[in-house]
Design a binder for these strands. Structure first.
Lengths: 168, 168
DNA sequence: TATGTTACCATACAGATGTATGGTATTTTT
DNA sequence: AAAAATACCATACATCTGTATGGTAACATA
């Protein structure tokens, strides 16, 4: 039923996921065309039709931004891990991604947020263990000096998903 | 600076919050007009202008669904608590709300989700204590027999926000 | 009484948006 | 070699969407 996506189609789908999960609101055809440098919305339209045909999205006809992901809870998006935190200590950000996780799309990633891997057990009281992947959103409530982190135990085995505000 | 909202304006703002937080995507003027039975989008437009003037929302001109809440992290929405759970045991749902919490708008409430108060300490290993408020989403991953809950310690004092999938 | 606010309506319009149709070029498959 | 799929383009169009303008009615305030 579901065929493989082509490279271009996959890029568009990634953009869709990025926008919907990150920004919260699906893009218009013009948005997508702009992003990929298409001079024409019809091109995007045809790609969306192809992607829909392959079962990855669903479109509500005639509705602006009427794109839905049909992948909820079935799909894992690879995301780069940008650095490591020795929990409690200052964090180290590497210029390049050091690793990659398949992140379930359930985990809404606000834009500008990034992933870090936790080192050390100094936060285990807060249920954050060494090796856990942490989602950090630098935008949320920076005034209060708080960081919002979400801890995701590896993959589908453990299936736990914490979201937590933490004092520095 | 910020004046009080009128009854109608407050209803519209509630609808906006409901859509944006619950459905994830802001409504169009037509959507709002439909919902409130207005035969005209201009009416909605004027209300939105009034609401914006009073500082509760921000609109991106000319953009479809370009409504943003300016209340993020500053605003607490009162939500009814529908029942209680003796953690681990079958839950009791009351016909009427038994209480109300001021819920920070950060806590995204998927549509159809509801609030329960936890009784008993049988889940304290999972960091859920008696008196905590739990957000239950009956739609998410029902196939796996899982419930997604988010634990919110009371109000602004503790400022912790867990979001967690739990096996029944 | 005059003025302002609130809450609707109707009409009109420019630009955004999704869609349809047809065309060209390249690559892949049969 | 022929057919199909892919990846773009251009043009056209109906509807959606936000916006502007003006009007009516109720009500409170000055």
């Amino acid at each position: 039923m579901k065929k493989e996506l082509t490279e271009v189609q996959k890029n568009i789908l990634d953009f869709l996921i990025d926008q919907i999960k990150g920004k919260g609101i699906p893009p218009t055809l013009a948005d997508i065309a702009d992003y990929f440098g298409y001079s024409n919305r019809a091109t995007v339209q045809q790609h969306l039709q192809a992607i829909e045909k392959k079962g990855y999205i669903k479109k509500s006809p005639k509705l602006s931004r009427g794109i839905e992901l049909t992948l909820e809870d079935k799909f894992f998006v690879p995301k780069p891990i940008l650095g490591e935190v020795a929990a409690g200590n200052p964090l180290t950000i590497y210029p390049d991604a050091i690793d990659t996780v398949k992140l379930p799309t359930i985990a809404k990633m606000p834009q500008d947020s990034f992933l870090l891997r936790v080192k050390g057990d100094s936060l285990k009281d807060a249920y954050i263990f060494s090796g856990d992947i942490v989602i950090v959103n630098p935008n949320l409530e920076p005034k209060n000096g708080q960081i919002v982190v979400a801890v995701l135990d590896d993959a589908a085995v453990v299936k736990r998903f914490y979201k937590k505000k933490n004092e520095i």
